[in-house]
Design a protein around this nucleic acid. Structure first.
Lengths: 189, 189
DNA sequence: TCTAAATGCAACAGGGGTGACGCAGTTCTG
DNA sequence: CAGAACTGCGTCACCCCTGTTGCATTTAGA
């Protein structure tokens, strides 16, 4: 199946969107759920899923592609190369958190190691490090800090914030993440 | 299968250990690997795996139980209730990292949400918070810090450190984790 | 040494997911 | 409106994993 040469009809395009969103819901709850469960959640026949996505991997690929596209867009909107580093850091964090809250499975999948997404991961990591380097130049990050480690910690904090059930407002979560990233949990001088 | 009433013979006990270690290797690389792959990695017939573990869940249960037992032991050895908080924090972190490096799959499994391991998770979290509270009393952690969030961040940092390929020495990794937890990546006063 | 336990091997039944097919009915779109 | 595209439904074959059984052989341990 899958023929991407001819543009899809409007209703077919709608089906694709519906399936992607249903897959996110179902796979977030159970990553090994069958495509039949996905189809059921989408209110669609199983065969339709197979018509639109050659196999399970193709479906996941589409979800990941979708997430990367969203991240690309919302991050760009924060002007991470020109805005003041601290402002950009807060903005990017809140935006990424919003994406993560809406697409937890696809987001997790996007960042699992493996050669499949390495290009997308690398591109994102580069933008992240670039922003951190600007923050470093501004004195927000210690000059001797390892930006690779810093980036890892940043990702991890975003992941934890998304699992923090106490808070639902992305802005507040972002503030906590950035604060913890920069100052840790120790006493303030 | 599975008969835990009668004590196992020495060679059977050895088989169990071999299977557990093989399962760790195989499942760490591919969490959905078949029991046949596990058996092959253990140099054992598939039926032997089924003889020792009633089903896949029982095998994972044994791995998780093993990890919790190890954690309990190595943490207790650090005297987290009596040793100076900073010393205990370093010791516990290094010890837990050692366990995590040896049993990455079982460790991840032990901390995945779900009612199955909640008691073990809760018990561990309590010990963690207790240690953090002592650190708080010593002024290592800010008085206004949210210990729940702090504990989450601590877990996440340990997880990231274990994935940090640059470093292999648990002591050095622990130092980095504790330092980042307490002070973040910002400049030092 | 002798018995009970453990293992390997082959084979079996069962279940579930996957992918494909044709066909009839519906929906878009030029 | 007419043809093309899309969907639902039933059905099919296939494959892989799971769990179990019986039997011959090896091994541990009293």
């Amino acid at each position: 199946m899958v023929n991407r040469e001819r543009p899809l009809r409007a209703d077919a395009e709608r089906s694709v969107r519906t399936i992607l969103e249903a897959a996110e819901k179902v796979l977030a709850a159970n990553p090994t759920a069958s495509l039949e469960q996905v189809a059921e959640a989408a209110g669609v026949a199983r065969t339709t899923v197979h018509r639109r996505f050659a196999n399970r991997q193709a479906l996941v690929d589409a979800m990941v592609h979708n997430v990367f596209a969203q991240l690309d867009e919302v991050i760009a909107a924060c002007r991470p190369e020109t805005a003041p580093p601290l402002v950009a850091l807060h903005g990017v964090t809140a935006s990424v958190l919003r994406v993560k809250l809406g697409w937890p499975f696809a987001m997790t999948e996007s960042f699992t190691p493996g050669a499949r997404w390495s290009e997308g991961q690398r591109a994102l990591a580069e933008r992240c490090v670039a922003l951190l380097r600007r923050a470093q130049a501004d004195g927000l990050v210690a000059a001797e800090a390892d930006l690779g480690w810093t980036c890892q910690v940043y990702y991890a904090l975003i992941g934890e914030a998304a699992h923090h059930t106490d808070e639902t407002d992305p802005e507040v979560m972002a503030a906590k993440v950035v604060d913890t990233l920069l100052h840790g949990v120790g006493p303030r001088p």
